[in-house]
Computed example of a mutant assay.
Amino acid sequence: MELLPQSREALDEYVTPTLDDVEALLRVIEGWAVRTVPECVAVSVTLLEDDLTFTLVDDVSAAQHLASPARTEQSEPFDLHALDEDGWADMARERAFTGIASSVSIPVVEHGRAVLNIDLYASTPHAFHDRIDDLVDALGAWQAGAVTNADLGFDTLRRAEAAPERLREQRMVDVAVGLVAARTGVTTEDALAMLREAAQRAGISETQVAVVAQSLLA
């Protein structure tokens, strides 16, 4: 699989004291997933604390250019009963991202806290059937939290595409926090609280406040 260009860009910029090599983690997860589910065509890993998603796909160009959702105007409407699980699953697949027929989302829990979310996508409808236990064992994940076919629309792709911009915005906020802390003699935690309060009062984003703070204090 290949990294999305945006994931490569985000990985090049991402620095964390708690996770040395995100790409190595992605590759390990990819290896386990593909060995367990050969039909797997995409892997997304979300770092929950930072709300950042990184994605590997079987075909980068297809992922970036195919229309999503794949449903067309000619698709027949579904007549669904509220408790018809099979019908809901069929409707979800009808609205799925092109090339994805099934998905599973598995949280990874450390010390009672979810730290990662792993989303796997496959090209066949039943690729993950009877394989969840093997995936959970291989990935060290939390079986009780596994959810199937919740992201047939490949929403993690859009989050991965937005990751570089999220990192740039966070860096602007971090710089502004440092400037406020240095200028006012408070801790960075207090400076961040001040920035957030200013954003809330002004009805604008933290990033916008950070831009103003940098222009005034730099």
Rank of each mutant, 00 (worst) to 15 (best):
L152S: 02
L167Y: 05
T148H: 09
D90P: 05
E9F: 08
A92M: 15
L25E: 14
P5I: 06
Q170K: 15
I204M: 09
V177A: 09
D79L: 12
L66K: 11
V37S: 02
L47K: 03
Q200C: 09
G145A: 09
A33M: 06
V43M: 03
A182I: 03
A96Y: 02
N117A: 13
V45S: 03
P5H: 05
E169Q: 15
R201V: 14
R158Q: 12
G203P: 01
L152M: 01
P125G: 07
V37P: 01
Q170Y: 14
V22A: 11
A210M: 04
A202W: 09
Q170H: 15
L120D: 02
L120T: 01
G112C: 04
D174H: 08
I100S: 01
E2L: 10
E165D: 12
L116A: 02
M1Q: 07
A62V: 10
T184A: 09
Y14G: 04
P17I: 00
Q208F: 09
R166S: 13
L3P: 04
S61K: 13
A42R: 04
E76L: 11
E110T: 13
F128R: 03
N117H: 14
A218E: 15
A182D: 14
V22E: 01
T207G: 13
T98S: 13
L139V: 06
A191T: 00
E165G: 10
G153P: 05
S68F: 03
L139R: 04
T188C: 11
V60C: 07
D59L: 05
E206R: 12
H65F: 04
D90T: 10
Q200H: 13
E110P: 07
R95A: 00
A24M: 07
E30K: 12
L179D: 02
F128Y: 04
D21R: 07
H129S: 15
D90H: 12
A191E: 02
A89L: 15
E76D: 10
V211K: 09
V115M: 07
G112R: 00
A213R: 01
Q6E: 15
A63N: 06
A114S: 13
Q143G: 12
V22W: 05
L26E: 05
E30F: 11
V209H: 00
A162Y: 08
P77T: 06
W32D: 15
I132K: 02
L139T: 05
P77H: 06
T187I: 09
S68T: 12
Q214K: 14
F97P: 03
E39V: 07
A89R: 15
R196W: 05
L80S: 06
F154G: 01
E206W: 08
